[in-house]
Write a protein that binds this DNA or RNA. Structure first.
Length: 385
DNA sequence: CACCCGGAAGCGTA
DNA sequence: GTACGCTTCCGGGT
């Protein structure tokens, strides 16, 4: 009899898990047997069959770390899961994404995309990711897993801000642009490319632990997890009123991106400690960012994805970007682009496409429709779900 | 007029 | 060379 992941108790967010001290001496097999801190479930269903079981039964060609899966791998995983756990047929069209994106999906996201099977998929993924993380910790100099096709790129810790970025910040741009640039610079410090993205889901309240291990700016915007503060967004009513210039821009405190921008010598902050998960509309919320190798930061500063970018703005714990974009209803995942052109500029700076405008950016957003990442809120301008 | 839509072609990156 | 995620442009609809 197999241990059905879907029957496991709720799994703590990986963020919290990652902070759990590992039992020492470490035993990888033990992890597979009790990959999720099964102490909590021991009382109900002692794993009669170690999870090691199904790990070893993963298709050979599948890297054990789901975050390195490509689309085909994801399909293979879905098919394997269907067979392995007698799941209802899964609509693969709902999973046109790579493994990294799939890992970002929350339990609810998965359940929406694979009714009846989401829990199982979620738990299996959690286990696989956790295992990969553990292996990575144990073998820091080795690829995440022996079967990984490629290890995560090591972080270019000395990775400096891009020249464009410096140029912008040194220019006497408008406050708006300056802020935009600084934000972009900050965001550039992070990158995790994901093929397609999770669709914002209604739930995902899956609170991720709210922690600010380091209050330094480098982490600020990424510490949005569980930012309940943004639960009911005051900008519900800000509507166009917020468009009165850029006065609504975030203040320039020493901890703001702008401040960071003005300190070129400030060391690059690898997204290491900021395991801060991102709470967000959806899939975003259950972070997943913490799923990524802590010391992995791709050198490609243009690699940020639009949805990721928007998510970070939306979930800024300090609500500094509500003059650009804000939740209308966080529970339903509906958000409004308060300042379309301003947001487009931000995005343009982020991608170094300085001629970016809302028309172009919205085209990119529309591409998200077809992959169920985004949908337009009919009749409401600049509102998406 | 601004927004919205989606096709088509092109580009940069991995 | 290929796939991907846009970017850019555009004609058409509301």
């Amino acid at each position: 009899m197999k241990l059905i992941p879907g029957h496991l108790p709720p799994i703590p967010t990986s963020t919290s898990m990652e902070r759990l001290p590992l039992p020492l001496p470490f035993n990888a097999d033990l992890l597979w047997r009790y990959p999720l801190g099964f102490s909590s479930m021991a009382h109900q269903n002692p794993p009669s069959s170690p999870l090691l079981d199904y790990k070893s039964q993963l298709p050979n060609s599948l890297p054990s770390d789901p975050r390195v899966w490509n689309r085909d791998d994801v399909m293979m995983f879905l098919q394997w899961s269907e067979r392995e756990y007698d799941l209802q047929p899964i609509d693969q069209d709902m999973f046109q994404m790579n493994g990294k994106a799939m890992c970002l999906l929350t339990r609810n996201d998965l359940s929406e995309r694979a009714p009846g099977s989401g829990d199982v998929l979620y738990n299996v993924l959690q286990i696989l990711v956790r295992e990969a993380n553990t292996l990575q910790r144990m073998l820091p100099s080795s690829p995440v897993t022996p079967t990984s096709r490629h290890p995560y790129p090591l972080s270019p810790h000395s990775h400096p801000p891009t020249p464009n970025w410096n140029m912008l910040t040194q220019k006497n741009e408008s406050l708006h642009t300056s802020h935009a640039a600084s934000l972009a610079a900050h965001l550039m410090a992070q990158s995790n490319s994901v093929t397609l993205s999770p669709a914002p889901s209604v739930d995902s309240q899956a609170s991720s632990p709210q922690r600010l291990d380091n209050p330094s700016f480098g982490h600020s915007i990424f510490s949005m997890s569980g930012s309940n503060g943004s639960g009911s967004n005051p900008s519900d009513s800000d509507e166009d009123a917020d468009k009165k210039g850029y006065s609504g821009s975030p203040p320039n405190t020493p901890n703001t991106p702008s401040a960071y921008a003005l300190m070129p010598q400030m060391p690059y902050l690898p997204p290491r400690s900021p395991k801060e998960p991102v709470s967000s509309p959806a899939a975003f919320r259950n972070t997943g960012r913490e799923f990524f190798p802590s010391d992995s930061s791709e050198p490609n500063t243009n690699g940020r994805l639009l949805w990721d970018f928007l998510q970070q703005l939306l979930n800024d714990p300090a609500q500094r970007y509500t003059s650009y974009i804000a939740w209308k209803n966080r529970d339903t995942g509906v958000f409004k682009i308060v300042d379309p052109s301003g947001l487009a500029k931000l995005w343009g700076i982020q991608k170094n496409h300085l001629s970016m405008n809302y028309d172009k950016m919205s085209r990119a957003l529309r591409y998200y429709y077809r992959v169920n990442i985004l949908r337009k809120v009919q009749g409401e301008r600049h509102c998406y779900q």
